[in-house]
Protein backbone atom coordinates (compact mmCIF):
# COMPACT_ATOMS: atom_id res chain seq x y z
CA UNK A 1 0.00 0.00 0.00
CA UNK A 2 3.04 2.23 0.16
CA UNK A 3 3.43 2.13 -3.57
CA UNK A 4 0.51 4.35 -4.28
CA UNK A 5 1.22 8.02 -4.53
CA UNK A 6 0.07 10.37 -1.86
CA UNK A 7 -2.05 12.28 -4.31
CA UNK A 8 -3.92 9.17 -5.27
CA UNK A 9 -4.53 8.41 -1.64
CA UNK A 10 -5.96 11.83 -1.18
CA UNK A 11 -8.17 11.18 -4.14
CA UNK A 12 -9.47 8.04 -2.46
CA UNK A 13 -9.91 9.94 0.74
CA UNK A 14 -11.97 12.53 -1.11
CA UNK A 15 -14.07 9.72 -2.53
CA UNK A 16 -14.62 8.45 0.98
CA UNK A 17 -15.66 11.88 2.16
CA UNK A 18 -18.02 12.13 -0.79
CA UNK A 19 -19.61 8.81 0.07
CA UNK A 20 -19.79 9.85 3.69
CA UNK A 21 -21.62 13.03 2.78
CA UNK A 22 -24.03 11.06 0.61
CA UNK A 23 -24.74 8.56 3.39
CA UNK A 24 -25.11 11.39 5.85
CA UNK A 25 -27.77 12.92 3.65
CA UNK A 26 -29.56 9.57 3.63
CA UNK A 27 -29.34 9.34 7.41
CA UNK A 28 -30.47 12.87 8.12
CA UNK A 29 -33.41 12.94 5.73
CA UNK A 30 -35.77 10.76 7.80
CA UNK A 31 -35.03 12.78 10.92
CA UNK A 32 -36.33 15.84 9.13
CA UNK A 33 -32.98 17.60 9.21
CA UNK A 34 -31.91 19.56 6.15
CA UNK A 35 -28.87 17.48 5.13
CA UNK A 36 -26.64 20.17 3.66
CA UNK A 37 -27.35 22.52 6.53
CA UNK A 38 -26.58 19.69 8.92
CA UNK A 39 -23.20 19.11 7.36
CA UNK A 40 -22.52 22.80 7.15
CA UNK A 41 -23.35 23.29 10.80
CA UNK A 42 -21.18 20.31 11.70
CA UNK A 43 -18.12 21.74 10.00
CA UNK A 44 -18.78 25.32 10.89
CA UNK A 45 -19.01 24.17 14.50
CA UNK A 46 -15.42 23.00 14.29
CA UNK A 47 -13.93 25.59 11.96
CA UNK A 48 -16.32 28.51 12.02
CA UNK A 49 -14.31 30.77 14.27
CA UNK A 50 -10.88 31.01 15.75
CA UNK A 51 -12.10 29.81 19.12
CA UNK A 52 -13.80 26.80 17.52
CA UNK A 53 -10.62 26.01 15.69
CA UNK A 54 -8.80 26.28 18.99
CA UNK A 55 -11.20 23.74 20.48
CA UNK A 56 -10.66 21.45 17.52
CA UNK A 57 -6.91 21.77 17.99
CA UNK A 58 -7.22 20.87 21.65
CA UNK A 59 -8.84 17.62 20.52
CA UNK A 60 -6.29 17.29 17.74
CA UNK A 61 -3.33 17.31 20.15
CA UNK A 62 -4.03 14.08 22.07
CA UNK A 63 -5.49 12.40 19.00
CA UNK A 64 -2.37 13.16 16.98
CA UNK A 65 -0.08 12.00 19.76
CA UNK A 66 -1.97 8.68 19.79
CA UNK A 67 -2.13 8.11 16.06
CA UNK A 68 1.44 9.19 15.34
CA UNK A 69 2.60 6.98 18.17
CA UNK A 70 0.65 4.07 16.72
CA UNK A 71 2.48 4.37 13.41
CA UNK A 72 5.79 3.44 15.03
CA UNK A 73 4.86 -0.08 16.15
CA UNK A 74 2.83 -0.48 13.00
CA UNK A 75 5.98 -0.02 10.97
CA UNK A 76 6.97 -3.35 12.49
CA UNK A 77 3.43 -4.65 11.81
CA UNK A 78 2.36 -4.39 15.43
CA UNK A 79 -1.17 -3.34 16.30
CA UNK A 80 -0.79 -1.58 19.60
CA UNK A 81 -4.46 -1.63 20.45
CA UNK A 82 -3.43 -1.11 24.07
CA UNK A 83 -2.90 2.56 23.26
CA UNK A 84 -6.15 3.39 25.02
CA UNK A 85 -4.88 1.95 28.27
CA UNK A 86 -1.57 3.70 27.75
CA UNK A 87 -3.37 7.05 27.55
CA UNK A 88 -5.13 6.22 30.82
CA UNK A 89 -1.87 5.16 32.48
CA UNK A 90 -0.23 8.38 31.30
CA UNK A 91 -3.03 10.37 32.88
CA UNK A 92 -2.71 8.37 36.10
CA UNK A 93 1.07 8.82 36.32
CA UNK A 94 0.67 12.51 35.52
CA UNK A 95 -1.84 12.96 38.34
CA UNK A 96 0.29 10.88 40.69
CA UNK A 97 3.32 13.06 40.03
CA UNK A 98 1.34 16.18 40.89
CA UNK A 99 -0.38 14.89 44.01
CA UNK A 100 2.38 15.99 46.41
CA UNK A 101 2.11 19.59 45.11
CA UNK A 102 -0.60 22.12 45.89
CA UNK A 103 0.63 24.37 43.15
CA UNK A 104 3.74 24.92 41.17
CA UNK A 105 5.03 25.88 37.80
CA UNK A 106 7.08 24.70 34.86
CA UNK A 107 9.15 22.33 36.98
CA UNK A 108 6.18 20.40 38.27
CA UNK A 109 4.55 20.34 34.84
CA UNK A 110 7.69 18.93 33.22
CA UNK A 111 7.87 16.35 35.97
CA UNK A 112 4.24 15.42 35.34
CA UNK A 113 4.79 15.14 31.59
CA UNK A 114 7.82 12.95 32.13
CA UNK A 115 5.87 10.77 34.54
CA UNK A 116 3.04 10.47 32.02
CA UNK A 117 5.42 9.41 29.25
CA UNK A 118 6.94 6.88 31.62
CA UNK A 119 3.52 5.53 32.64
CA UNK A 120 2.38 5.09 29.07
CA UNK A 121 5.68 3.55 28.06
CA UNK A 122 5.67 1.05 30.92
CA UNK A 123 2.12 -0.02 30.15
CA UNK A 124 3.07 -0.46 26.49
CA UNK A 125 6.15 -2.37 27.53
CA UNK A 126 3.90 -4.95 29.21
CA UNK A 127 2.19 -5.58 25.88
CA UNK A 128 5.59 -5.69 24.22
CA UNK A 129 7.06 -8.17 26.68
CA UNK A 130 4.04 -10.40 26.38
CA UNK A 131 4.39 -10.28 22.64
CA UNK A 132 8.12 -10.78 22.42
CA UNK A 133 8.67 -13.28 25.20
CA UNK A 134 5.22 -14.69 25.88
CA UNK A 135 4.02 -14.95 22.27
CA UNK A 136 0.76 -13.31 23.28
CA UNK A 137 -0.59 -11.33 20.36
CA UNK A 138 -0.50 -7.61 21.18
CA UNK A 139 -4.15 -7.17 20.24
CA UNK A 140 -5.26 -9.52 23.01
CA UNK A 141 -2.81 -8.29 25.61
CA UNK A 142 -3.56 -4.69 24.63
CA UNK A 143 -7.30 -5.09 24.97
CA UNK A 144 -6.84 -6.85 28.28
CA UNK A 145 -4.52 -4.15 29.57
CA UNK A 146 -7.01 -1.47 28.50
CA UNK A 147 -9.54 -3.01 30.85
CA UNK A 148 -6.98 -3.28 33.60
CA UNK A 149 -6.06 0.39 33.17
CA UNK A 150 -9.73 1.34 33.36
CA UNK A 151 -10.04 -0.75 36.50
CA UNK A 152 -7.06 0.98 38.05
CA UNK A 153 -8.33 4.47 37.28
CA UNK A 154 -11.80 3.65 38.65
CA UNK A 155 -10.26 2.24 41.80
CA UNK A 156 -8.06 5.30 42.29
CA UNK A 157 -10.89 7.77 41.75
CA UNK A 158 -13.34 5.89 43.89
CA UNK A 159 -10.75 4.91 46.47
CA UNK A 160 -7.39 6.39 47.41
CA UNK A 161 -7.73 9.59 45.35
CA UNK A 162 -11.35 10.35 46.19
CA UNK A 163 -12.38 13.82 47.25
CA UNK A 164 -12.90 14.13 50.99
CA UNK A 165 -16.28 12.67 51.97
CA UNK A 166 -17.27 12.00 48.38
CA UNK A 167 -17.35 8.81 46.37
CA UNK A 168 -18.15 9.82 42.85
CA UNK A 169 -17.09 8.96 39.36
CA UNK A 170 -16.97 12.72 38.75
CA UNK A 171 -13.25 12.62 39.31
CA UNK A 172 -10.53 13.76 41.66
CA UNK A 173 -10.03 17.16 43.24
CA UNK A 174 -9.15 19.68 40.49
CA UNK A 175 -5.55 20.74 40.01
CA UNK A 176 -4.46 24.15 41.14
CA UNK A 177 -4.59 26.74 38.33
CA UNK A 178 -0.82 27.11 38.46
CA UNK A 179 -0.52 23.54 37.19
CA UNK A 180 -2.71 24.04 34.14
CA UNK A 181 -0.95 24.26 30.79
CA UNK A 182 -0.83 27.79 29.37
CA UNK A 183 -3.35 28.48 26.64
CA UNK A 184 -2.65 30.00 23.25
CA UNK A 185 -4.23 33.39 23.76
CA UNK A 186 -7.87 32.85 24.62
CA UNK A 187 -8.05 29.58 22.68
CA UNK A 188 -8.63 26.22 24.32
CA UNK A 189 -5.49 24.70 22.88
CA UNK A 190 -2.25 24.96 24.81
CA UNK A 191 1.26 25.85 23.62
CA UNK A 192 2.70 22.81 25.33
CA UNK A 193 0.11 20.53 23.73
CA UNK A 194 0.75 21.88 20.24
CA UNK A 195 4.48 21.64 20.82
CA UNK A 196 4.23 18.02 21.98
CA UNK A 197 2.07 16.99 19.02
CA UNK A 198 4.33 18.68 16.47
CA UNK A 199 7.42 17.26 18.14
CA UNK A 200 5.87 13.80 18.00
CA UNK A 201 5.20 14.18 14.26
CA UNK A 202 8.76 15.35 13.57
CA UNK A 203 10.27 12.67 15.77
CA UNK A 204 8.26 9.92 14.10
CA UNK A 205 9.08 11.26 10.63
CA UNK A 206 12.79 11.41 11.34
CA UNK A 207 12.91 8.06 13.13
CA UNK A 208 10.93 6.12 10.59
CA UNK A 209 12.19 7.69 7.40
CA UNK A 210 15.59 9.14 8.10
CA UNK A 211 17.35 6.67 10.38
CA UNK A 212 18.70 3.18 10.12
CA UNK A 213 16.61 2.34 13.16
CA UNK A 214 13.41 2.97 11.24
CA UNK A 215 14.62 1.00 8.24
CA UNK A 216 15.56 -1.94 10.42
CA UNK A 217 12.28 -1.75 12.27
CA UNK A 218 10.50 -2.01 8.96
CA UNK A 219 12.66 -4.97 8.05
CA UNK A 220 11.72 -6.62 11.33
CA UNK A 221 8.07 -6.14 10.48
CA UNK A 222 8.42 -7.43 6.94
CA UNK A 223 10.37 -10.53 7.84
CA UNK A 224 11.15 -11.32 11.46
CA UNK A 225 13.10 -14.49 10.67
CA UNK A 226 15.42 -12.77 8.27
CA UNK A 227 15.79 -9.95 10.77
CA UNK A 228 17.10 -12.41 13.33
CA UNK A 229 19.50 -13.92 10.82
CA UNK A 230 20.86 -10.54 9.88
CA UNK A 231 21.31 -9.64 13.55
CA UNK A 232 18.91 -6.71 13.46
CA UNK A 233 17.86 -7.38 17.04
CA UNK A 234 14.14 -7.72 16.36
CA UNK A 235 13.15 -8.20 20.00
CA UNK A 236 14.86 -5.08 21.19
CA UNK A 237 13.48 -3.08 18.29
CA UNK A 238 9.91 -4.23 18.85
CA UNK A 239 10.14 -3.32 22.50
CA UNK A 240 11.54 0.09 21.61
CA UNK A 241 8.67 0.66 19.21
CA UNK A 242 6.17 -0.19 21.95
CA UNK A 243 7.95 2.09 24.41
CA UNK A 244 7.90 5.04 22.03
CA UNK A 245 4.23 4.62 21.20
CA UNK A 246 3.36 4.21 24.87
CA UNK A 247 5.27 7.34 25.79
CA UNK A 248 3.38 9.37 23.21
CA UNK A 249 0.06 7.93 24.35
CA UNK A 250 1.04 8.73 27.91
CA UNK A 251 1.68 12.33 26.91
CA UNK A 252 -1.77 12.40 25.31
CA UNK A 253 -3.14 11.37 28.69
CA UNK A 254 -1.14 14.14 30.35
CA UNK A 255 -2.56 16.80 28.03
CA UNK A 256 -6.04 15.56 28.91
CA UNK A 257 -5.30 16.05 32.59
CA UNK A 258 -3.25 19.24 32.42
CA UNK A 259 -4.99 21.06 29.59
CA UNK A 260 -8.55 19.80 29.19
CA UNK A 261 -10.11 18.46 32.40
CA UNK A 262 -7.60 19.67 35.01
CA UNK A 263 -8.33 16.58 37.08
CA UNK A 264 -8.45 12.84 36.71
CA UNK A 265 -11.77 11.29 35.72
CA UNK A 266 -12.82 7.84 34.52
CA UNK A 267 -13.27 8.80 30.87
CA UNK A 268 -10.05 10.80 30.84
CA UNK A 269 -8.92 9.14 27.59
CA UNK A 270 -12.02 10.36 25.68
CA UNK A 271 -11.48 7.13 23.66
CA UNK A 272 -8.78 8.93 21.68
CA UNK A 273 -6.74 5.75 21.68
CA UNK A 274 -9.39 3.86 19.76
CA UNK A 275 -10.04 6.88 17.55
CA UNK A 276 -6.30 7.00 16.92
CA UNK A 277 -6.44 3.42 15.64
CA UNK A 278 -9.22 4.43 13.27
CA UNK A 279 -7.15 7.35 12.09
CA UNK A 280 -4.23 5.05 11.49
CA UNK A 281 -6.35 2.69 9.42
CA UNK A 282 -7.94 5.53 7.49
CA UNK A 283 -4.52 6.95 6.74
CA UNK A 284 -3.29 3.52 5.66
CA UNK A 285 -0.62 4.13 8.26
CA UNK A 286 1.06 6.97 6.39
CA UNK A 287 2.55 9.58 8.61
CA UNK A 288 1.88 12.32 6.08
CA UNK A 289 -1.87 11.81 6.28
CA UNK A 290 -2.45 11.00 9.92
CA UNK A 291 -2.30 14.56 11.36
CA UNK A 292 -4.84 15.78 8.81
CA UNK A 293 -7.25 12.96 9.41
CA UNK A 294 -6.87 13.69 13.10
CA UNK A 295 -7.83 17.27 12.38
CA UNK A 296 -10.85 16.05 10.43
CA UNK A 297 -11.98 13.92 13.38
CA UNK A 298 -11.29 16.74 15.79
CA UNK A 299 -13.42 19.14 13.75
CA UNK A 300 -16.25 16.59 13.69
CA UNK A 301 -15.95 16.04 17.40
CA UNK A 302 -16.12 19.73 18.23
CA UNK A 303 -18.75 20.50 15.62
CA UNK A 304 -21.08 17.73 16.69
CA UNK A 305 -22.51 19.64 19.63
CA UNK A 306 -23.85 22.24 17.22
CA UNK A 307 -26.42 19.79 15.89
CA UNK A 308 -28.54 19.80 19.05
CA UNK A 309 -27.71 23.44 19.74
CA UNK A 310 -28.47 24.97 16.37
CA UNK A 311 -30.75 22.52 14.64
CA UNK A 312 -32.47 20.94 17.60
CA UNK A 313 -31.45 17.54 16.31
CA UNK A 314 -31.17 14.72 18.76
CA UNK A 315 -27.53 14.77 19.73
CA UNK A 316 -27.06 11.09 19.06
CA UNK A 317 -27.31 11.93 15.37
CA UNK A 318 -23.83 13.43 15.45
CA UNK A 319 -22.53 10.07 16.63
CA UNK A 320 -24.33 8.41 13.73
CA UNK A 321 -22.79 10.85 11.27
CA UNK A 322 -19.32 10.23 12.63
CA UNK A 323 -19.88 6.50 12.38
CA UNK A 324 -21.09 6.84 8.81
CA UNK A 325 -17.95 8.77 7.91
CA UNK A 326 -15.65 6.10 9.27
CA UNK A 327 -17.68 3.38 7.62
CA UNK A 328 -17.49 5.06 4.24
CA UNK A 329 -13.73 5.20 4.43
CA UNK A 330 -13.63 1.47 4.92
CA UNK A 331 -16.12 0.90 2.13
CA UNK A 332 -13.99 2.98 -0.19
CA UNK A 333 -10.86 1.15 0.91
CA UNK A 334 -12.61 -2.13 0.23
CA UNK A 335 -13.59 -0.97 -3.23
CA UNK A 336 -10.04 0.14 -3.82
CA UNK A 337 -8.64 -3.25 -2.90
CA UNK A 338 -11.21 -4.99 -5.02
CA UNK A 339 -10.35 -2.79 -8.00
CA UNK A 340 -6.66 -3.42 -7.43
CA UNK A 341 -7.22 -7.16 -7.36
CA UNK A 342 -9.31 -7.04 -10.50
CA UNK A 343 -6.59 -4.98 -12.14
CA UNK A 344 -4.03 -7.63 -11.23
CA UNK A 345 -6.23 -10.42 -12.48
CA UNK A 346 -6.84 -8.72 -15.79
Amino acid sequence: MNRESLLRQIGWFAAAVGLALFLTVLVTLPSGAPPLTTIFVLFQGGLGSLSKFGQALSVWVPLTLCSVGLLIPFTARLWNIGVEGQVIMGAIFCTAALRPFDGGGAGQIILALAAAALGGALWALLSGLLRVFGRVHEIFSGLGLNFVALGVILWLIFGPWKRPGIASMSGTEPLDVSLWLAKVGSLSVTWAGLGLALAAIVLAAVLLHRTGWGLKLRAVGENPKAATLFALGPRRRLLQAFLLCGAMAGLAGATQVLAVYHRLLPSISSSYGYTGLLVGMMASYRLGLAPFICLFFAVLNVGSIQLPLQLGLDSSLSGVIQGVMVLSVFIVQGVRLWLAKRGEAA
Binding site: S58, V260, Y261, P266, S267, I268, S270, S271
Partner: peptide, 9 residues
Protein backbone atom coordinates in the same frame (compact mmCIF):
# COMPACT_ATOMS: atom_id res chain seq x y z
CA UNK B 1 -20.67 14.69 30.80
CA UNK B 2 -17.23 13.38 29.89
CA UNK B 3 -18.51 9.89 29.10
CA UNK B 4 -21.15 10.99 26.59
CA UNK B 5 -19.28 13.92 25.07
CA UNK B 6 -15.56 13.16 25.19
CA UNK B 7 -13.34 16.21 25.20
CA UNK B 8 -16.13 18.69 25.86
CA UNK B 9 -15.69 20.94 28.88
Amino acid sequence: NPADRPGLT
